[in-house]
Design a protein around this nucleic acid. Structure first.
Lengths: 271, 271
DNA sequence: AAGTGGTCTAGACCACAAA
DNA sequence: TTGTGGTCTAGACCACTTG
């Protein structure tokens, strides 16, 4: 990434062996010496080549895995990752009024940038539902103005073209708990709210952050614990502006990005 | 997080010891039994308590570190992390025209949500500059419509209240390479462009994604390799709409979040 | 000086995927 | 069946922080 800052103290003394190895392999990958899709020698051989134990060698490889530089497949081998095939979820600014939610975006031909693997289908499956508990329940309660005791929680996963894509958690007033039964019919939770319950939904706010995958998200998305996830949370409201639900989505950073396009003349930067 | 999916096969047989231990500690943290700021017993004692080697115990603790559940301080101990003190960088939609860049936002009292530790100062320091190379140079070239040979690259770090905050990389036509010398005077790169070179800057687009910290970002931001980083990249243009620079910012997911507020009546969701 | 985490070894056995 | 990665041990020594 920061190409000019390559020649570091990293190669000098005092640098742990696993770090030295990871850096060496990483630079081979960056330079293209190890091309995307290439298979690395097995761990025993790499360990011998670098003069360390397999455990130490593994520490280096796992670090590369966390960087997204390699993919480790048990029983098969370790491979250099290809550049991510990002699905771009696009919204226009200031014409956001005509934009849909990311969920609906996924079906919108125009909202998704054509990638090597175009999006064809998106379904949303319920993983669990019930009374809201835990620290985020209080946050949801504050966002919605609904007491935590009255909050209902819905956990889902969006499946894109047969692949688990986005882990979602919704919080809303228990009086809308009936949506649970409508999701299968309408494929997506937001549509269950809109078409099933007849609510006209819109945004109050959206926010972006990043976290490491916890145990549940890792299992849901099929990634190693700690993998960098993009978090997009927000509150949707009905046409009177009253909050309906708080939603928190988690997706792999290398599988999608959210794009805001400013289609009109550019805006001035203050100061 | 997903509270209802707690009782897993995780505790059964076939589950690695380090995972079992990590889960056990994690649940103690989630339940508040291990309160934020609390110090864990040292590794030797924990290892004995769980009946494993110190190395195995460490594997569990490191996994918790990647989750952001604990902070490991060498020579001191391991502590339960406090809930993140997120700085909220707020933009209003559709009134985005009056919004400034994140850099300028950092100085805007209204744009930053009051957190426990309010933002007082933001400076931007140059880490390096020169000809643009590497894979991202091609991307920048495409975004700007400038040949890669003519691209200049500028690496900086924004320092908030004395703490390294955001790692930035800028790419732009070499004819603006003079900004390098203006950054110190104007504190921020965007201001060096605006006030130093007299360019009226605005957005063409912004995008959000997430990655694991690579070796350079980890060193720049003082975090472990692989830490989840929020990436915000985009292209800024002058008042004629011609692209000026492509910028890619990386920041810790637990230190800031970008918020888009829809201040007017809510928007309809399609479909 | 004492206590804590950081790194490493040599060897073993297990779990999974592909042939 | 073979080859690959996944987990674990018992012990050692090093590096950092604090008193």
């Amino acid at each position: 990434m920061n190409d000019r800052r390559s020649a570091h103290v990293r190669t000098g003394a005092g640098v742990p062996a696993y770090r030295r190895i990871a850096t060496a392999l990483w630079e081979q990958i960056q330079s293209g010496e190890l091309a995307p899709g290439a298979r690395l020698p097995n761990e025993a051989e790499l360990a011998a080549r670098f003069g360390v134990t397999r455990l130490t060698l593994r520490q280096a490889v796992i670090e590369l895995q966390r960087l997204g530089a390699v993919e480790i497949r048990r029983g098969v081998g370790t491979f250099v990752m290809s550049p991510p095939d990002l699905v771009e979820i696009v919204a226009s600014v200031p014409s956001l009024r005509q934009e849909s939610d990311a969920t609906a975006d996924a079906f919108d031909e125009q909202a998704l940038h054509r990638s090597a693997r175009p999006v064809r289908t998106v379904d949303e499956l319920i993983l669990g539902s019930g009374a809201a508990t835990g620290p985020l329940a209080d946050e949801a309660s504050a966002h919605l103005g609904v007491p935590a005791e009255r909050l209902h929680r819905l956990d889902t996963v969006m499946v894109r073209d047969g692949r688990r894509w986005i882990a979602n958690s919704y919080w809303f007033d228990e009086r809308w708990a009936a949506v649970d039964g409508l999701v299968a019919e309408h494929a997506l939770v937001v549509r269950a709210f809109a078409d099933g319950l007849g609510l006209q939904l819109g945004y109050l706010w959206r926010a972006f952050s990043a976290i490491g995958a916890d145990f549940d998200d890792a299992e849901t998305l099929g990634v190693p614990t700690g993998t960098a996830l993009l978090v997009r949370d927000g509150v949707s409201a009905d046409d009177t502006g009253r909050p309906v639900f708080y939603v928190r989505r988690r997706l792999r950073g290398d599988e999608a990005k959210f794009v805001l396009r400013y289609d009109t003349e550019p805006m001035r930067v203050e100061g």
